[in-house]
Nucleic acid binder design. Sequence first.
DNA 1: AAGGAGGGTTTTTTT
DNA 2: AACCCTCCTT
Length: 663
Amino acid sequence: MPALDLSTLNPPQRDAVTTQHGPLLVLAGAGTGKTRVITFRIAELIRRGVSPERILSVTFTNKAAKEMLERATHLLGNKGARKKPVISTFHSLCVRILREEIETLGYPSRFAIYDRGDQESAARTALREVRVADKAMRPPDLLNVISKWKMAGIPPERAADFVENDQEFLAAVAYRKYQKNLRSSGAVDFDDLLLLTDHLFQTNPEVLKRQQQKFDYVQVDEYQDTNGVQFRLVEALVAPHKNLCVVGDDDQSIYGWRGAEVEHILGFDRHFPGAKVVRLENNYRCTDQILDLANRLVKHNVGRYDKTLIAHKSSEHPVRFAEFESEVEEAEKLVAEIKYLIEEKNFPASSIAILFRTNEQPRVFETELRRMDIPYVLVGSQSFFDKKEVRDLMAYLKALAFPQDDISLMRIINTPTRGIGASTVEKISTRAVQQGSHFFEAVDTSLKAGDISQKAADSVRSFQRLLETFRGRTQSEVHRLSDLVHELIKTIDYDSEICRQYKDEAQQIARKEVLEGLVSSVSDYVQQAEKPSLYEFIENSALGARDDESNKEDLLSGQGVKLMTLHSAKGLEFPWVYLVGLEEGYLPHRRSVEDGSRKAIEEERRLAYVGITRAKDYLTISRAGTRKKWGKKRLSLPSRFLHEMKGETAPPEVAAAIAFAED
DNA sequence: AAGGAGGGTTTTTTT
DNA sequence: AACCCTCCTT
């Protein structure tokens, strides 16, 4: 654990950071010790007698929250051991508030939180219900549009007025279905958590007052990434005292597509008059060459605070630019070098990171790393919870915990196959919609109406009984929840399902191990939980806040080469970094280029900036001349950012291609 | 209803 | 190359 050291701040800055009252904006560039500022402030406030639980710090990821808590606890030593400062993500904070205020809500007292996978299923169902052809709009696209509307406070009924193109017209119709289905399943998505809390604050002064009284000091990390709803929540919480300290860097705003608005950080002193502004421009992370490159690149952005970070470390090694024939060669050559570094130079694998723009890119590197027997960790979205088996089993657990959750039920009703075919499901569902009931309540009607056979009805009912039995037991035998999950897997005979699906024996074993992993994480959860419940386990999983899992991740991350997207690399640093795939269409991404707006390209440029500034000592930036896409080899041109950061003009063929794409 | 073959489509980024 | 959907046979 690095010692906390504010010697990097000059005295007025130090005073400002520890100012006890009023709004404070810390504009901190990359590598200037942003997070340290918050941790230091927490410790300082506590030292001055503020009770730890009255200090709220909000981060964007659970990982960041956990790390901050560890640092703060460490800093406080034994003194802080009894009470802890509150550190949480926006989403966990909202869940807590909603749970506390559940009585006032008028919403079902139990609600399922849908994770990304659930949201996609719900989106797919909605699209189907409004008969949108699959190719007209994909579930993820629908979710993006819905999220945009939700963050702008636009409800389903009014979405039609805000439609900007044909696709959004379809989305507006599907949005209504999506929200209706979620509500009838007793579920909320990530955005709803924020929206409901916001709504609660706006409409219920007592609730707001109660929540306001909980905290005397509020701090927000990565403030450049707050969206409209998050801004309103913060504003509401600090309204009585305005003791708000935000930390961020407008050059690292990379979540515009999720509704983040840089205006929040740029206009902080307008929103909070009298705000103190502290600028941190001394970079202690990167060598001067790395920083030069980053500075030169980001200067091409127009909408930003003009600032130049000052390096405090001189370069031992120049930044390298590598070019390869294909993406395969890129992976082979770079991994060969990594092998050399680890084996010959005793470089710890964990100090090396490979950063890329999209989730498709790490594949080649994974193959190569595995071939070379180098330990690696793929950090990010394609995680444990995205595996099909886990999602199936989680759907079972959700169906158990939430009897009205028909969306989860649909996922598992015939998985593994149990004689409930598509047409049976279709017919019962239609009846259910007609009579405005849940799926199981429509079985009788369907049978009487002659929609389905007696045999089909029996299969459905017997599955319903199975669920009910387990549902009862998850409550009465909650202390042995993991045994129950194990028993459930045996009862539904999921193992046979795996064997049927995967012919390869190694695959079968791997998949079964995944399931065992889930069972053991349930068991870990039950052990560490104060008052274990199936609901809480599901909730933790959705929010990605499961202790056991992140511990495992930490354990792993100590060992391997890290592979991650630029988005997940935000806030991290590594001694040795490969920034790969610097090609037009990837960075900047094709979709942003096609968008054509300066804003879109500037966000891509900030992504590249984030990538460069992750490197402490060594940076290699690489590109491939060809790249396989959809099984076909295609020419890949060097990214415009390469030329910008080197201070060159793009060669004619690249410039022509850029101009062509922008037309 | 289940399973397999064949055909078409796909890849931003994430709490 | 991998996935999902549809259609066809059993």
